Amino acid sequence: MQIFVKTLTGKTITLEVEPSDTIENVKAKIQDKEGIPPDQQRLIFAGKQLEDGRTLSDYNIQKESTSHLVLR
């Protein structure tokens, strides 16, 4: 499924993911596309910070959901 990640600069990154993917996996995909190390990434969805060990389905992130990327 596709999800979108919006950066603070207003850029939207499109990612191909599975509901069973962990947040860690998603951060690795963002690193592949954008070159941002996962330890600098914070992903926010529905006002919550997403934890590495959880999956997209844990957070009820469905296709075409948009989460926000904040850099630390």
Rank of each mutant, 00 (worst) to 15 (best):
K33R: 10
P37R: 08
A28K: 15
R42Q: 13
E24V: 07
L43E: 00
P38I: 15
P37S: 08
Q40G: 05
V26W: 01
D52Y: 05
E24D: 07
H68A: 08
K27V: 02
R72P: 09
T22K: 08
K6Q: 10
P38T: 14
K63D: 12
L50A: 03
Q49D: 14
P37H: 11
L8H: 14
T14G: 05
E16R: 09
E16K: 09
D58Q: 07
T9C: 15
Y59K: 01
Q31L: 09
S65A: 09
K27P: 00
V70Q: 10
K33N: 05
R72G: 10
T9G: 12
K27M: 07
S20V: 05
D58A: 05
G35C: 06
K11W: 08
T7Y: 12
L56G: 00
S57I: 08
R54T: 06
A46Y: 09
S57N: 09
L8Y: 14
L8S: 14
L43M: 03
T55A: 06
I23L: 04
R72K: 13
P19D: 06
L56R: 00
S67N: 10
T66K: 10
V70T: 08
A28W: 12
L15P: 00
E16C: 13
D58I: 03
Q31H: 14
A28M: 14
D21M: 10
G10D: 04
N25T: 14
I61M: 07
K48H: 11
T12H: 07
G53C: 08
I61E: 01
P19F: 06
I36N: 02
I44L: 12
M1I: 11
N25K: 14
K27T: 01
T22P: 05
K48T: 12
D52T: 06
G53Y: 10
R54K: 13
Q41P: 01
P38E: 06
V17N: 00
E24Q: 12
K48Y: 09
I3K: 00
L56N: 00
R42I: 15
E51M: 11
T7P: 03
D39E: 13
L43D: 00
L56A: 01
L56C: 01
E18Y: 14
T12E: 06
K11R: 12
K33T: 08
S57G: 09
Q41N: 03
F4C: 08
L56F: 03
D39W: 13
E34S: 13
Q49W: 14
F45W: 09
V70W: 12
K29W: 04
N60H: 09
D58M: 05
K29I: 06
K63N: 14
T22G: 03
G53H: 14
Q2D: 05
I30G: 00
E64C: 11
G10P: 02
V17P: 01
D21A: 07
Y59I: 04
L8P: 14
N25R: 14
Q62H: 14
P37M: 06
F4N: 07
E16Y: 13
T7W: 10
K6M: 12
K33C: 09
R54F: 12
T12P: 03
D21L: 05
F4H: 10
V26Y: 01
I30N: 00
K48W: 07
E64S: 11
K27C: 02
A46N: 15
I13H: 03
I36Y: 12
L56P: 01
Q41C: 07
E51Y: 07
L15W: 01
G53R: 09
L56S: 00
D39K: 11
A46V: 06
E51H: 08
K11I: 08
L43K: 00
D32P: 02
R54P: 03
F45I: 04
L8I: 13
V5Q: 00
L71H: 06
F45S: 04
K29D: 02
G47A: 04
E16Q: 12
D39H: 13
I3P: 00
L8K: 10
Q40R: 11
Q41R: 02
V70L: 14
V26D: 00
S57K: 12
E64V: 07
R72C: 14
T22I: 04
T66P: 08
T55L: 08
S65M: 11
G53A: 10
L50T: 03
L71M: 08
P19C: 06
L56V: 07
Q2C: 10
Q41L: 06
L50N: 01
I13Y: 05
I61R: 01
R42G: 05
N25I: 14
V17Y: 03
T66H: 15
L69C: 02
R72E: 14
E64Q: 10
G10S: 04
I30E: 01
Q2G: 04
I23G: 01
I3D: 00
D52F: 04
L15R: 00
T7V: 09
T12R: 08
L69R: 02
I44Q: 06
S57W: 09
I30R: 00
L15Q: 00
I13L: 10
N60Y: 06
Y59R: 01
I13D: 00
K11H: 11
I36F: 09
G35L: 04
G53D: 11
Q2S: 10
R72F: 15
V17D: 00
T22W: 05
F45G: 02
Q62S: 14
S20P: 02
D39Q: 11
P19E: 08
I36H: 07
K33P: 02
L50R: 00
N60F: 06
S67H: 12
L50P: 01
Q40M: 11
P38S: 13
G35P: 02
S20R: 08
D21F: 07
T66N: 10
Q31N: 09
L56I: 09
I44S: 11
V70H: 15
R54W: 10
S65L: 08
N60W: 04
P38D: 04
T66D: 09
R72S: 12
E34H: 07
L71R: 06
K27G: 01
P38V: 15
T55Y: 05
G53F: 11
D52P: 06
L15A: 01
L50Q: 01
L69Q: 02
S67Q: 11
G10A: 03
Q62N: 14
D58F: 14
I61Q: 01
Y59C: 03
I44P: 00
K6H: 15
T12C: 13
S57L: 11
T12F: 11
V70K: 06
P38K: 15
I44Y: 15
Q62D: 14
S65P: 12
I13P: 00
M1N: 03
E18A: 13
L15N: 00
I13F: 10
I3W: 02
Q2I: 15
G53V: 07
V5R: 00
I3E: 01
E64L: 12
V5W: 02
S20C: 11
V5T: 01
N60I: 04
F4T: 08
I44T: 11
L50Y: 01
L43P: 00
D58N: 04
E34R: 05
S67Y: 13
L8N: 11
I3Q: 01
K63P: 15
A46S: 09
I36W: 13
T14R: 10
K27I: 03
L43H: 01
K27R: 05
S65D: 09
I44F: 15
K6P: 01
Q2R: 14
R42E: 11
T55P: 05
D39A: 12
L50H: 01
P38R: 13
D21G: 03
E16F: 13
H68Q: 10
I23K: 00
Q31M: 13
T7F: 15
L71I: 12
L71A: 06
A28Y: 12
M1S: 03
K63L: 10
R42Y: 12
R72T: 14
K29E: 02
A46H: 14
Q41A: 05
L15S: 00
V26T: 03
D32V: 13
K6N: 06
G10R: 04
I23Y: 01
I44K: 04
G10M: 04
